[in-house]
Design a protein around this nucleic acid. Structure first.
Lengths: 154, 154
DNA sequence: CTCGGTGCAAAGCTTTTGCATCCGC
DNA sequence: GCGGATGCAAAAGCTTTGCACCGAG
């Protein structure tokens, strides 16, 4: 599935979600979703807000926050709490589920996928008698500088 | 090892750390460490600050933040970023390494331990050629209310 | 005696909130 | 037209910073 189709499908999912929850299908909401699916990788509220402002789109931070909450709720966007006071987001639809490794030297964020995480999730859920909905796994690691540069380049 | 010994040992570790880094062994620093090892479970900066104020100990928030950074650096305290803008901390010395499951219904924090996390850490480290120092694994789960009450009681 | 560490308060940053206006339904 | 949604700006909440004073080495 190419990116254009993914973005299109995401719009349909969002439309259905809003319909189902009796929420209004405002142009701002769809514009924000489109902007997100046009971007690559991770982003934060401020960069998303600035991007839209640069395109002369009239939005407020409040609307961006509000819409992101909705998108997270309908699983089109994932929210991460990597740093101290900066929430990071990323697209969640049409992209393989993965976890993150953060370089403590250069702060680069790398992605990885290990099926065993799912197994642990199942085991722990049964053990504690909880229904695990989702998870966050972050590895904090160091690298020698040159190795790091390679990773960034790739 | 009983708690008193753990706290005592932690004080010695901190003393050695400060010595090694040529940092001053101020009474505030040791008072903060003691307060932490006296408490149970998780805490945040504000609650720690209030506790010390209630005991009529003269400290400032700035010093609490500063000291916590040092304690995290020498592995006596672990820092978590559970919620949006509230960093949580917990003692790290003399307590088994574990991960967390957070109930999305009542926000209770439960602990669990699964050795397979270590295996994944090793695998991913080798794969991405990083030296993984530590990790954060959080499961977000829901419970039926009654089950939740039991967990809180235990 | 020096200068790192502290207390206090102000500033900084991200996120939330109040209110008048706007527009989807 | 009604009531939810938006934009703007002010407020809130956690954390950091500037500065004068204090006290560990």
């Amino acid at each position: 599935m190419v990116r254009a189709n993914i973005a299109e499908k995401a719009q349909k999912i969002f439309h259905a979600y809003l319909e189902n929850k009796s929420l209004r299908k405002t142009p701002e909401r769809f514009a924000i979703l489109e902007e997100i699916y046009t971007r690559d990788g991770h982003f934060n509220v401020e960069s998303l807000y600035v991007s839209m402002k640069e395109k002369n789109y009239r939005v407020s931070r409040a609307t961006v926050y509000n819409t992101l909450d909705l998108l997270v709720d309908c699983d089109l966007v994932t929210k991460h709490q990597f740093g101290r006071n900066l929430a990071q987001f990323e697209r969640a639809y049409g992209f393989r589920q993965h976890d993150h490794l953060i370089c403590t030297d250069c702060n680069e964020v790398h992605e990885f996928c290990d099926p065993r995480v799912q197994n642990i999730q199942t085991t722990v859920g049964q053990l504690l008698r909880f229904n695990v909905l989702h998870h966050s796994l972050i590895f904090y690691a160091s690298c020698d500088r040159e190795n790091c540069e390679n990773k960034i380049a790739s």
